[in-house]
Nucleic acid binder design. Sequence first.
DNA 1: ATCATATATAACTTATATATTATATAATGA
DNA 2: TCATTATATAATATATAAGTTATATATGAT
Lengths: 117, 117
Amino acid sequence: MNELHNGPLVTKFAALSDPTRLAIVQRLAEGEATVTELAAPFAMTQPAVSRHLKVLESAGLITRRVDKQRRPCRLAEGALDNLDEWLAMLRQTMSAHYDRLDDVLAEMQTKDDRTTE
Amino acid sequence: MNELHNGPLVTKFAALSDPTRLAIVQRLAEGEATVTELAAPFAMTQPAVSRHLKVLESAGLITRRVDKQRRPCRLAEGALDNLDEWLAMLRQTMSAHYDRLDDVLAEMQTKDDRTTE
DNA sequence: ATCATATATAACTTATATATTATATAATGA
DNA sequence: TCATTATATAATATATAAGTTATATATGAT
């Protein structure tokens, strides 16, 4: 309910706030891929992509398994659940406080009345 | 459909990847607040919060109006729509490629068969 | 053994982010 | 007019992020 619990959420948002990582997540929505496969589309070195994967993994967005010398990546189970939940919670708060323009203008008016006393 | 269109999304994720800004957004879901009101809960100077608001505004997450010397902030109309849409799109991709563990293990097996020839 | 492939890590550079203090601006109120 | 309140901006320091190259490690192939 409050900002003390939002650490993991902040971490996920941070992980998604990079175009390379966002594209990697989109790619992984189609299924598993190895580091090399994931790196291929990008004008970037392999170590750079490895770092991005580490960020995604630390954020709990992806997991990796071991297949010989490959480390195929996939989206983590329920990776996006807390994002959805946060958005849903926010919408609920918004509708609970349903902030129509009319209401706001009315409130502005009464505030003025009080302040201008 | 591709990563060329994700600029605004990346910007929004970046804007939300900070605990202060996330808390501000949550607060604004309850309705308008001035900069000073928003700054109050944080152990941070007013200029710091002003900067955070600028980041949120640049990302299209909040708007401000002018009320005398105040600049009340509110969540932007449809602020979170593209986040929702992106998450929905991702889920759709995931279910389209429905990646059950069984399938993956089966595919691993056939890959092994081929590679170990 | 040796070489190639897949991946990770370290060292380093540069760019960006975040916070601070000091100060500017604009409107209010006395 | 002068002080106060609300907010923004500039200058600056510091931290973090993101990329590079070089190198290490592990597996697989010859």
